[in-house]
Design a protein around this nucleic acid. Structure first.
Lengths: 120, 120
DNA sequence: GCTCATAGGTGACTAAAGCATATAAAGGAG
DNA sequence: CTCCTTTATATGCTTTAGTCACCTATGAGC
């Protein structure tokens, strides 16, 4: 598969879910990136390490999260992230947006099921 | 506003919704871009004209839709798009994906509501 | 010493969207 | 006829989220 036009590309997928899911995971308590990677796989949202770590850094630059190194355990040091108040607010905004989106998806699916189709 | 870090950017919004909504709108019958623009506003999904027209062209390159000029009415000519069989398949794939996504959003919202909060 | 699991990260690229802007046809106001 | 508005399509530049392929490093077991 190397020709680029025609043929159904478009693996149906929306973008922008990683960030809110990270916020939710962090809202349950401070953790480090690697653990978040595993948590998101468990949640059915496998995330690329690159995007995860970069998203965490961006969030920190914005003040949504703060981090601190944890050198206690074995293995390499972990950067442990924690939600700030601003992070909680952002999470709340996302939750409101998701309620709206969920409704819109419902409307989409309802409209889809009601479509007249060629059945003759 | 020229400083780029800190401060809550991130208008909560996922990306990738325009394409499936276009497919749904076209599944109800052939139309042209401008009309789709208005329909999507009505559906609560205002879309930038640039994105819309480009998405339609991409869809056509892929064989998801086909277009024909309509010079009948008044005003400038309209390019009328119609879903192909491949387009219907793609729409079906999106619908299945949206069912899944809707469920995930539900899980997100449930988990969000069950979060322990500092109330003391 | 070598490999493996854990942990964090960068660089190059693509896709979808944001934003500004251009072009053009028809109709109405003056 | 000229100007303005509405309808209609389109391009260019930039940003953002994600993919893919890598790279570094610690510590444990063999």
């Amino acid at each position: 598969m190397s020709h680029k036009h025609h043929g159904h590309r478009h693996p149906p997928r929306v973008r922008g879910l990683v960030l809110p899911w990270l916020l939710l995971a962090l809202a349950r308590g401070p953790t480090h990136g690697y653990q978040l990677l595993e948590q998101l796989v468990d949640a059915g949202l496998p995330v690329d390490p690159g995007i995860l770590y970069r998203t965490l850094r961006t969030l920190e630059e914005e003040g949504t999260v703060v981090s601190a190194w944890d050198t206690e355990g074995t293995g390499p040091a972990r950067r442990v992230y924690r939600l700030t108040d601003q992070g909680w607010e952002l999470l709340a905004t996302w939750a409101r947006y998701f309620e709206d989106l969920r409704e819109k998806l419902g409307e989409f699916l309802r409209a889809y099921r009601e479509l007249p189709r060629d059945t003759g």
